Amino acid sequence: MPLSHPSASTSPGFALRMVAISMTASGLCVSSTAMAQEPTDTGSSTTWGLGLGVVSEQEPYTDIDRENTPIPLLQVENRYIHVFGPQIEFKLPSLDISDSQQLNFGIVGKYDGSGYEEDDAPILDGMSERKGGFWAGAKVEWSSSFVDVSAEWLADVSSNSDGQRFNLDLERTWHFGEHMLITPRVGASWQDEKTTDYYFGVRDSEARIDRPAYAGESAINIEAGVRGVYRFNKHHSVLMGVEVASLAEEIKDSPLVDRSTDNSVFLGYLYRF
């Protein structure tokens, strides 16, 4: 992220950045791995996989570098839990509405690596560190043959921002032959004023001529992306994902920001045992 990075072995924030990038990979391909499951995998047996991926991420802070990072991948799933990277979902009993419709419920926990250190970019010089945090909440998904709609509410249980988020997503999966699955998605992500202010606000003590004080307000980002899986066979899969978010005015108006979007690209390989 910074204009000149310390080496990975000496950078004090390297471990946190690795977790942050891993969280991005999780958001991009957690459902992609679910798409790759065999129908029988939803029973009582546990499936798991190991792999390696690369994430390229661009945050909206002024003059911050694009981050390109290799990451290890771990995926575990059965009828009770789904683990991918630093995210875990505890599955609750589902409700069958019809042969083609189902309501799925879950309790989710994840690490979100949002935030920065003051040496990440010149505009952040003199700013107090903004830390990522552990978030937890609930998720509900309406699954149908036409579209899948999911809603997720999360709260910052690590109390760094003391914020809340609500995500609403619509997606649909298309099968191309026996090996390829593509899932485009659109969504909206709301965050409260505490979250916006923590990551994009400027405190009075941090203000300077080119960085006036700024208090963040609640914001809604519009998101779009596509995820995909190419399965060579039941063991070997290639995963990909592209995500773009159009930032809310409450974020773009921050003196720390010079972009109207942020984006992430993921490419990985997963071996399922």
Rank of each mutant, 00 (worst) to 15 (best):
W48E: 07
L181P: 00
L50P: 03
R272V: 14
L95P: 01
F146C: 09
E57Q: 13
E77T: 14
N233L: 03
T46D: 03
K91F: 08
Y116A: 01
W174C: 01
F146M: 14
S218P: 06
L50Q: 05
I251M: 01
N221L: 00
V76W: 12
S31L: 14
Y198F: 12
W142D: 05
E250D: 15
T173Y: 02
N263C: 04
I123M: 11
S11N: 15
M180H: 07
F14I: 09
G115A: 00
I88Q: 03
S159Y: 09
G126C: 09
G216T: 04
F273E: 02
E223K: 14
L95W: 13
R231F: 00
T183F: 08
S114M: 12
T40H: 08
S158K: 03
D65R: 12
S114R: 15
M127L: 11
P72H: 03
I21N: 10
P70T: 07
V226C: 12
K139W: 04
G115W: 02
S114Q: 13
Y80C: 03
G126M: 09
T62R: 14
D156E: 07
I209S: 10
G13T: 12
I123Y: 07
L3F: 04
G177C: 06
Q37L: 13
I71P: 05
I123H: 08
I251D: 00
H236T: 00
A121P: 01
T24S: 11
E117W: 10
P70G: 11
E217D: 15
D112E: 14
A34M: 12
Y199L: 06
G106M: 08
P93D: 05
N160M: 06
S94W: 05
E89P: 00
E250Y: 03
L16M: 07
A8F: 11
V55Q: 04
M1E: 12
S7P: 05
N78P: 11
Q164H: 12
S22T: 11
V265P: 04
F176I: 04
G113L: 10
S264Q: 14
P255K: 08
A121V: 02
V226T: 13
D148C: 07
R259N: 14
A121Y: 01
S100M: 08
P72V: 01
T195E: 12
N68I: 14
S100P: 01
Y80W: 13
A213S: 15
H235Q: 06
F232Q: 07
E89Y: 01
G27R: 12
R259F: 06
A34E: 13
T196R: 09
A207E: 13
E217A: 14
M127N: 06
G53P: 02
D262K: 11
I81D: 06
H175R: 13
S145I: 07
L256I: 08
S189P: 01
Y214W: 04
D156S: 11
W48D: 06
Q164R: 11
N233C: 02
T173S: 15
I81T: 09
G268K: 02
S7F: 09
K139G: 07
G268Y: 02
G177M: 09
T10F: 10
E117T: 13
E38S: 13
M35A: 10
S145F: 07
T33I: 13
D96C: 02
I64C: 03
N104R: 12
V265S: 03
S158W: 02
E67H: 06
